[in-house]
Write a protein that binds this DNA or RNA. Structure first.
Lengths: 150, 150
DNA sequence: GTCATAATGTAGCCTAAGCTACAAATTGTC
DNA sequence: GACAATTTGTAGCTTAGGCTACATTATGAC
C-alpha cells in the first residue's frame, strides 16, 4: 500500500520498528534515572547507553518531537504522560522477559543482558505464554497442589 | 577505547549489530531460496522482505563487499563459503528459538514470526538453556525416567 | 529476430543513529 | 564574583537502509 503513495512521508516498517525500540530504551532509562538519582541528564544517558552525548542529544530531539519527553536547553529531562506510559509498559515487559529467562535456567547476568534485545521482539501472545509459564513454574515449585506449608 | 581513536573508521557497536542482523536475514533467505526454488534473485528477496528491489540491490553490494555473497550484474545470487556458514548458523539458531517458543506454549505462527526478531538477541548461554529445556521437556514427556515403552 | 515485459541497476533524496570538533551555558571552587 | 571544569548544544561528516524515478539488460511471445 504505502509503497505506492506519492508522498512517502513515513519511514517504512523496519525503520519505524527500530526507532521505536530506541524510544523504549530511552524512556525506560530516563524513568529509571529519575527513580534512582532524582533526575535524568544527557550525560547519564550517554554513559549508560555507551554513546556520546551528541547522539543522546539528537535522539532526544526526536523524542521531544514525538511527544515522549520534554526538556529545556541545559536542563534535565522529563517524561510526558505518553512517555511515562511507554516506560511502564517497557519495564513490565522487560521484567517478565528477565524472569522468564531465569526460570528456564539462564544465568541472571545473561538474562538481563539478553532481555534488552529480546524484549522488543516479544509479541503479546508470546508474553502471555511467558507469564503462564512463570505461574506454572512457581505453583509447581513453591506451593505444590495448593497445600500451604506451615 | 574505540571512542577515542582518531580514525573512527568502523561503525559503532549498535550499528554493527544491526547490520549484522540484516546480513543474517539475507543469507538465511538466500539459502532458503536456493534450496526451494533453485536460485535466489533480487526480486524474490525484495518480495519476501517487503522492500523494493533497490534496497535489496544496495544491501547486496554491502554483503558482496563483506564477502558473504557473490553475484554478477543481472544474474542470480550465490553465497560464499562464509555466507553459507553464517546462513547455517542462523538457521540452526532460528530453529531452536522456534521450537523453544512452541515448547512453552507459543502458537506456531507466532513462534515463527517472533523468532525472526528474537533470534538475533539470544546469546550463546541462553541458546544453551533453550536446548537443555527442550531436551528436558522431550525426555520427560516421551520417555519418562529412562523406561522404554514397548 | 523483434519487441514488450520483467528484472536489475543507478542517481539522488530522506531519516536514524553513530562520530569528532568546536562553541556556549552551567556548576563548583576558591 | 571569577574562573576552571563539566555539561550541553551545534555543525558537519559517515553508514545503513528506506524510497521514487529513470536507465539498462534479460526474457518471453510472436
Amino acid at each position: 500500500m504505502g509503497r505506492h503513495t506519492p508522498l512517502a512521508r513515513n519511514p517504512t516498517r523496519t525503520r519505524q520498528e527500530h526507532s521505536q525500540e530506541t524510544a523504549q530504551d530511552y524512556v525506560e532509562m530516563i524513568a529509571e534515572l529519575i527513580d534512582t538519582t532524582g533526575e535524568a541528564r544527557v550525560i547519564d544517558l550517554a554513559r549508560r547507553l555507551g554513546v556520546t552525548h551528541v547522539t543522546v542529544s539528537r535522539t532526544l530531539q526526536r523524542l521531544r518531537r514525538e511527544g515522549l519527553v520534554t526538556s529545556l536547553p541545559y536542563r534535565s529531562i522529563f517524561l510526558t504522560a505518553a512517555g511515562t506510559r511507554l516506560s511502564e509498559e517497557s519495564r513490565h515487559r522487560h521484567e517478565i522477559v528477565v524472569e522468564f529467562l531465569q526460570s528456564v535456567g539462564v544465568p541472571a547476568a545473561v538474562a538481563h543482558s539478553d532481555a534488552e534485545g529480546i524484549e522488543h521482539h516479544v509479541s503479546r501472545e508470546t508474553l502471555d505464554a511467558f507469564v503462564k509459564h512463570l505461574r506454572r513454574g512457581r505453583a509447581g515449585r513453591r506451593r505444590p497442589s495448593g497445600r500451604r506449608p506451615r
